[in-house]
Amino acid sequence: MNDPMSQLHDIHLPPAVSWWPPAPGWWLLLLLTIVAGILLGWYLRQRSRRLDLYRSAMQELCRIRRQFAEQADFSQLAAELSRLLRRVAISLGPEEDVAGLTGEAWLCWLDSAMEGREFTQGPGRCLVEAAYRPTGQMEDADALLSLVEAWLEKVARETSHV
């Protein structure tokens, strides 16, 4: 008689689970980490670019202040400040939104960064009017310089409107 136990074979265990390929959750985690790294890098680059632009704009503003203190030419001050504001605005936003603006439209665009009407109805108005005034006629240069400095600081902190 045949022994039924002799027909049994040893138990074969399956191979050990390999670490490769990872489970789908690990692939998703890797993808999310890569996307987060790219977004963080982009944010830090934009922030650094804005800070560099702000620092150079403030240096230029200091140069304009010194030049005005030496020459006391208000029309030149207004022209230089307008050029500075336009360079900063073009650097921060889409060029086509800013480059063609002149006169009242330019002042309204500058006001859109501030929560007021300092450019269209305040000391900033002379940015477009100073070229047409006699050289002897002066405005409040300190108020204009302070307004431009406040605009630069505001835009450096929040560039969402540009």
Rank of each mutant, 00 (worst) to 15 (best):
S160Q: 05
T135N: 12
L81V: 06
E129V: 11
V155D: 11
Q59W: 01
V128Y: 03
L39N: 12
F119H: 15
W42A: 14
E80L: 04
E104L: 03
P22F: 09
S160H: 08
F74N: 07
S160P: 01
W27Y: 14
W106S: 05
Q121G: 01
W19C: 10
W151H: 14
D52R: 13
V148K: 00
G41C: 04
E153I: 02
E96R: 07
L85C: 14
S56E: 01
E115F: 05
L92C: 15
L61I: 07
L39I: 13
V88A: 09
Q71P: 00
V88R: 05
R133M: 13
W26V: 08
S48N: 10
Q76Y: 02
D73H: 09
V98S: 11
A141Q: 13
L40P: 00
P21F: 04
Q121N: 04
F74G: 06
A72G: 05
W151S: 10
W106Q: 07
A72T: 06
L84A: 01
K154H: 15
R117C: 03
Q71H: 04
V128T: 14
D111G: 07
R157S: 12
E139S: 15
A72E: 07
Q71W: 01
L44A: 09
A131Q: 11
S48R: 15
R66P: 00
E60I: 00
S82Q: 08
V128M: 08
P134A: 14
D140N: 11
G116E: 04
G41T: 06
R83S: 08
L85N: 02
W27V: 09
V148Q: 04
L32F: 11
L147G: 11
L107T: 02
T102H: 10
C126W: 10
G122C: 06
R117L: 08
T102K: 10
F119T: 15
L28M: 09
Q46D: 14
T102P: 01
E104R: 02
L144P: 03
L147T: 11
G136S: 12
L110W: 12
R63M: 00
R157T: 12
P123E: 15
A141W: 06
S75V: 04
G41E: 04
F119Q: 15
Q76A: 08
A141C: 12
A78P: 03
Q137S: 14
A79W: 03
Q71D: 05
Q59A: 04
M114T: 15
E149L: 01
V148C: 10
A79K: 02
L127R: 07
A156E: 12
C108M: 07
E70M: 00
R49A: 10
A105L: 01
E149M: 00
W26Y: 10
A72F: 08
R133A: 13
W26G: 00
D52S: 07
Y132N: 12
L31A: 15
W20E: 14
D97M: 03
V155G: 11
L32C: 09
T135G: 14
D97Y: 04
W19M: 12
V155A: 15
A150M: 09
A141D: 14
A113Y: 00
I90T: 10
R65Q: 13
S82P: 01
E153V: 03
L28R: 13
A130S: 14
V98D: 07
E118H: 09
G124W: 13
V155H: 12
L32D: 01
S56M: 00
G122V: 02
A150E: 11
P24T: 00
A130M: 11
L145P: 01
L144A: 07
R63P: 00
